[in-house]
């Protein structure tokens, strides 16, 4: 376990202590939920690394056990098919707006009385998405301390706070074929800026303070024109590309006092981008000037122990 992630966990603990009450994250309560109903038990533990897809796969297998199966048996085949279809459509709709598909939403809009069938319906929806579109529905990692918006969701029940997004599973070679239209809504510019921000976070030990980011923006002569960076960052946070976090007292002793917030990679970034793609991007920026040990330098700058 890295020193940084240990520190992060400490921060998580601390902030949770501060905020006792209904909004408290349930790390401490976890033991209780372990012993309760199977559906609840499968609630994701705060993940240490971001390899979300594998673990969520495992989880699904565990989940589709007795209770879920019973519920599914009560449904007719047509009903199950219809629910699978609706989840697929809902997932596509969410992806188009780049908002996460929340478990709670699926239950409310599609499953209704059959909420326990969720794991079965979800895994069938995944099959369908993968077969038709070459996309997988993966759970978004929830490693970071929850933002205030997320905390409101976790109030109810942790299992319902799970959220999912689509990930392209076509071979990398195909994804890079210039077929997909990025032109609309300045999408290309926005993704360009996002890639730059993610790279900067990456090479600064995976954390970037507000001040540092603004400093980079000034050097890059980015302001409100041509892209409104303040608004865009808010959008990136909403879409799950960036995580914004208030710096706690412990962290403050290390960094300067006027660093109120810092940015990390958000769950969507971890799924859509990869360490190697960022590395390639940075190499591309250096072009012919890239030194042979650039990848090593990037690795060092990012702190070693983070694995994609």
């Amino acid at each position: 376990m890295s020193s940084r992630s240990r520190r992060n966990r400490n921060i998580n603990y601390d902030s949770e202590e501060e905020e006792a009450g209904p909004s408290k994250r349930t790390r401490g309560r976890q033991n209780n939920t372990e012993t309760s109903r199977p559906v609840k038990r499968s609630r994701r533990e705060p993940v240490e690394s971001s390899d979300s897809s594998d673990s969520s796969q495992e989880e699904l297998n565990i989940q589709s056990s007795s209770l879920a199966d019973k519920t599914v048996k009560k449904m007719s085949t047509e009903e199950l098919d219809r629910k699978v279809k609706e989840v697929v459509r809902l997932a596509l709709a969410c992806e188009l707006r780049k908002v996460p598909l929340r478990r709670e939403e699926v239950v409310r809009k599609v499953l209704a009385d059959h909420s326990r069938a969720f794991p079965v319906v979800l895994s069938k929806a995944r099959e369908k998405l993968s077969d038709i579109f070459g996309m997988d529905l993966v759970e978004m990692p929830t490693k970071e301390k929850p933002t205030s918006a997320r905390r409101r969701v976790t109030k109810k029940e942790n299992a319902s706070a799970k959220s999912f997004m689509l990930r392209n599973t076509l071979p990398k070679k195909l994804r890079e074929v210039n077929l997909i239209n990025w032109d609309k809504n300045q999408e290309l510019e926005k993704m360009g800026l996002l890639t730059v921000i993610l790279s900067l976070i990456h090479v600064n030990g995976r954390i970037l303070s507000d001040d540092q980011l603004n400093h980079y923006f000034r050097r890059l002569r980015l302001g409100d024109e041509p892209l409104n960076t303040t608004k865009l960052i808010a959008t990136f946070i909403k879409q799950g590309y960036l995580n914004k976090q208030k710096v706690t007292a412990i962290e403050n002793s290390r960094t300067s006092e006027k660093d109120p917030v810092e940015y990390r990679w958000g769950p969507r970034a971890k799924i859509e981008f990869s360490e190697s793609s960022i590395c390639d991007f940075i190499k591309g920026v250096y072009g012919d000037d890239a030194l042979p040990d650039l990848p090593k330098q990037i690795e060092r700058a990012s702190g070693l122990e983070f694995k994609m």
Binding site: L96, D131, F133, L170, P171, I180
Partner: peptide, 17 residues
């Protein structure tokens, strides 16, 4: 015959509409 070519076309259609 449904293959990655179809999936790629479909993904492109989704971005174009």
């Amino acid at each position: 015959s449904y293959a990655n070519a179809h999936r790629l076309f479909l993904q492109a259609s989704m971005s174009e509409r």
